[in-house]
Design a protein around this nucleic acid. Sequence first.
RNA 1: GGGAGUAUGGCGGAACUGGUAGACGCGCCGGAUUCAAAAUCCGGUCACUUCGGUGGUGUGGGUUCGAUUCCCUCUACUCCUACCA
Length: 836
Amino acid sequence: MSSRYNHKIVEKKWQKIWSGKKVFNVKKNKDKKKYYVLEMFPYPSGKIHMGHVRNYTLGDVVARYKKMRGFNVLHPMGWDAFGLPAENAALTEKKHPGNWTYQNIKIMKSQLLQMGLSLDWDRELATCHPEYYKHEQKFFIDMFKAGLAYKKEAEVNWDPVDKTVLANEQVIDGKGWRSGAVVETKKLSQWFLKISKYSDELLKDLDSLNQWPNKVKLMQSNWIGKSIGANIEFKIFKNDKKITVFTTRPDTIFGATFLAISCDHELVDMLLTKNETLKKFIEECKNLNSDKVKRGYETGLVAEHPFIEGKKIPIFIANFVLKEYGLGAIFGCPAHDQRDLDFANEYKLDVIPVVKPKDSTDNNFTIQRKAYTEDGVIINSEFLNGLNIEDAKKVIIKKLEEKGFGTKKVNYKLRDWGISRQRFWGCPIPIIYREDGEILAEEEVNLPVKLPEIEEFNESSTALANINGWKDTVCSKTGLKAVRETDTFDTFFESSWYYFRYCNTKLDTPLDEDDINYWLPVDQYIGGIEHAILHLLYSRFFTKALRDLGYFKLNEPFKGLFTQGMVTHQTYKNSNGEWIEPKSVLSTDGKFKDKDGLEVFSGKIEKMSKSKKNVVDPNDIISLYGADTARWFMLSDSPPDRDLQWTETGIVSSYKFINKLWDLVEKYENYSVKKISDTQTIEILKENINFVTEYIETFQFNKAVAKIYEYVNTLSLSIQQKGLSKDELMWCLKKLCIILQPFVPHISEEIWFNISGEGLCINQKWTIEVVEKKKKIKIAVQINGKTKDVLEIAQGLTKEQVIEIINKSDKIKRGLENKKIIREIYVEGKIFNFVV
RNA sequence: GGGAGUAUGGCGGAACUGGUAGACGCGCCGGAUUCAAAAUCCGGUCACUUCGGUGGUGUGGGUUCGAUUCCCUCUACUCCUACCA
């Protein structure tokens, strides 16, 4: 045995043994309890970053721990392989995006292998592979036939120079990121999935997800945005048309002083003819999307108030009325809605307060610049007067329904999921447009609808529509000519079901219900908070949709969710405001200088990003210090859900710890003590083990790390004092290997091998230790709540016996001198407090 | 504008349902070893102190025998969302 620990050799060795023995390859086994650990799969961007290292280390701790607790652990990995960066790379390289993607997968896989993750690589998948995406084409067809997928006109960001549709993230300050051209909104026919059908279920079932962070549930709930109110119908004076509005405040109907409709409300078309000023106004509104100024156009039409005989309300077209929400029409009650009030002040409209604060005695309660939106008492509202808001809502809705002017109505912010992308590197939407005008799903036997193999990838290749001949096809039923849909799926489509596919990636059908029944739901899903809404909501929707399509009976895909914090690092800038790499910064006399001696200023600690030059490449770290060191650092100090600050000293100290562990083996080999026993130390170590167990179970890995440090410190001290017998020491070291295994698996195996040689450490059982009840306990003795002394006393004494011991304490005697004891408070095993 | 969260030594962070504040790690200081350094090991490390103590968990208050923990006030920072009627 060489005295210096060589991580390069050792880590490779165990990685080879694990994969050779297929230690992490699992099979469905109904006699064994399963546990499904999943980390959000990576986009193959080229190489792994620290965020991946953190994410996969956290997951690996859980996976290894659960395996050692006897679970049949499914822990798979794959690639979220469609997406725009591949197209951009393809443009530069003039090669097919697949080349770049598969090449990156190869590199990143080798990096992940170096981390020593307990993954079942036999289940690896890449979403860009036809054997993967053909199944989601099938899902789409099922959804299409079930009415869950449909086509409608929708606005997209259109880059007039690149002649392409841009994602929202690709529009920067209203301009295309690539061309710099001003982006136009263009109406295109787009495919949508009817996620809105599940609004209520998606909201309700959040309650059942008790192993999800509240934060994520709240974000989803806000996104779904359920609101309860009423639709109210207004007759237009001297016109046979009507306007229906949605409101959550029907109780303020008597305060309505105007109606406002959105720019593309159906009434606008009628008004538009021969009206140039209106046309101009509408055009302006389109360009004022992000404008907070309230603008309106008075239509000249007036509506009749449903409850006030003869009252006329002007109708405006207003820029602040959203077309996609509710009915694209509102009634304005300026007194109790800030937006309405701003608008009313601008256009000199009446402001009639109909709610006043409960305790207000002001009979002339008026509203100036600030709308009153709190609870209160209804005024100026005939039959509603005197009611509170809640009751008034009930009464007015009942009245509306009686009179036929409106109904109770529930609205959601959640809109249907637009899945069309006018791109190349995505899954083709399996629809054909036949020459007779029929829109049909591709026949299932014809799946997959594959992406074209093209030799040279250029600007015009970035959309399937531009690829010569690809879209031409024939309807296999009728022989009629047809063209394919040239849009591809949003890449969230792929990630919405990959966790099902892992159950069996070789299966010819999308999935097997029996597999799903066994493996799903995912017991622990781990990933970044940035996916709190979209990915997680889409996946939940997919699960419910597939359930309704008869694939299985599962309601929710992810039983437990954990969102980890970011990896951050110090940033530096020079006097020109340019970012400087931290590793090139030198610190002298409290000042920072770069390589050339120019002064550098330390900036904020921020998320690692290329643009700020504060990234640390995991590859460098792993080759220099080893995977165990990197993993240990990722788990030390910071709680997993908080941001982790990368520091050079931190990684070095982790490295030192790994080497210190190795020194223990040497100490063991040279250890020669017989027939002595240190049961006290062993009891402490057992306690430590149980703490580690508890802290893994509760995702407090930083605390587990602290307890392992304590374990090693206690053990080192005992070795030094030669208190343990050699057998006891072996037991302690074996236990140490076991608790280290989820965290730093390579050195854990290596130590295990050196001291025992029997089997693999990862195959050992992780047990809960039985700790003897302590005979002596410590209690704090306080005077007026301030601790004056700490005494060690025997377990289970009476109050009188305790007082007797306390009376012997000098410190307490001194503290009680010349004082009168009013009260004595004794909490067994904790404190004794004198109140004087 | 709306919502959520956070605040503890020089730093990252501990403290069970209110019961010894600062576990553990980093850094720093002192010592051992060394020709010297690195590495390693040992000891110390909240502040003030007349060495008896006193003060101390962002601010100010409250409840309590006792508050980092519960309640109210204010401040700072972070994140999400955004004209959702």
